[in-house]
């Protein structure tokens, strides 16, 4: 397709993104912000696709537009009134001892501070653009991308993004799974799951009956296809989590997660645990940490990704539940 047509698409996407970002950030009402943010995520998916980043587009469609949106919507709907309450009001409620420190919430009310910060942001935008244009116009060496493709054959997969994520920079991904685990443990430490949803009506049940199997099927497909085409554990995990979220929205309580605490713990830990175990096994075999033997690499990556998908999906579902599952017997379904 020729450049002019692409230019029209680019301009439309950029206008849509900028106006949606601005509207999301300046909305007076939190619920409106959330809806605009979801629309922003949808358009963003198109932009990633246009910039030839299908892996990122998949993740954005699953997480950015879908799950983050559901998380945020649940947050505004849970406390429609309080979610809007400003930090200023909250700080006023702070009944602990006198705070000696200057309170930034008070500072914010000052018009002068608002303008100073706005001018600072404008200046930052100019500096950023200046530096970025310098960087993009200078002939930066492409060595890293070249060495990725040079070593792709030894990585065990043929999708370069999966190779970077699960082989060349696998250590990042291991720590990222630890971040997910930290978040869910932090959520557990904070509270129990929020109240559930009303049992679904016939229309919703119809949606559930075809959407959930489709999501599970799609998750399996993404996991498998990730080795040689866009896809992988994260996209698959988010898709699987979406199935859980739908079930939860339809009023089901345990949405397929085990009730037993120890089984639940295993599911949460298995992603990072298996990853670490593979890494340490390599150490025991006299190889560097996470250095897979090339012949085994493909299988090991698939194994790690499967475990990671399970943990990611469970983590995201529990994040949507907003706390540790209750042990009480379920009477509603």
């Amino acid at each position: 397709m020729n450049a002019t047509n692409m230019l029209f698409l680019d301009i439309l996407l950029v206008i849509a993104l900028l106006s949606l970002a601005w509207a999301t950030l300046t909305a007076t009402d939190a619920r409106r912000s959330v809806i605009l943010f979801i629309a922003f995520g949808l358009v963003l998916t198109l932009a990633w696709a246009r910039l030839l980043a299908p892996d990122v587009a998949l993740a954005e469609a699953a997480i950015g537009a879908g799950l983050s949106g559901a998380l945020l919507l649940a947050a505004v709907q849970h406390h429609p009134r309080r979610a809007l309450s400003s930090e200023r009001q909250n700080t006023g409620k702070l009944a602990n001892e006198k705070q000696n420190d200057s309170n930034p919430a008070d500072l914010k009310s000052s018009v002068a501070i608002r303008w100073t910060l706005t001018l600072f942001c404008i200046a930052l935008a100019f500096v950023l653009i200046w530096a970025l244009l310098q960087a993009l116009s200078s002939e930066t060496s492409d060595t890293l991308a070249q060495s990725v493709s040079a070593n792709l054959a030894n990585s065990g997969v043929s999708n370069p993004v999966t190779a970077v994520l699960l082989n060349f920079r696998a250590y990042d991904t291991l720590l990222e799974l630890a971040v997910l685990l930290t978040a869910v443990l932090g959520i557990f430490a904070l509270s129990e799951q929020r109240t559930g949803y009303l049992p679904a009506g016939p229309v919703f049940n119809g949606l559930v009956s075809w959407l959930v199997p489709a999501l599970i099927l799609m998750a399996g497909y993404l996991l498998w296809v990730g080795a040689h085409a866009p896809g992988g554990a994260f996209q698959a995990g988010a898709t699987l989590a979406a199935a859980g979220v739908i079930l939860r929205l339809a009023g089901k309580r345990n949405i397929g997660l085990p009730v037993s605490k120890s089984y639940l713990n295993i599911i949460l830990v298995i992603g990072s645990g298996l990853f670490l175990l593979v890494g340490l096994t390599m150490l025991a075999l006299g190889r560097p940490f996470l250095d897979y033997p090339p012949a085994m690499a493909g299988y090991l990556i698939l194994l790690i990704e499967t475990a990671a998908m399970i943990s990611i999906a469970a983590t995201l579902i529990l994040a949507f539940l907003g706390g540790r599952p209750r042990n009480r017997e379920d009477r509603s379904c």
Partner: peptide, 30 residues
């Protein structure tokens, strides 16, 4: 147009997940 078959997968995911967002919007909490 771009010769990127993977974008069809993206379309599929987008279709499925947009439904989730809509369901989250209409779901009523107890």
């Amino acid at each position: 147009l771009l010769g990127q078959p993977a974008l069809a997968d993206v379309a599929l995911i987008l279709a499925l997940l947009a439904a989730v967002a809509a369901a989250a919007f209409s779901g009523q909490q107890r």
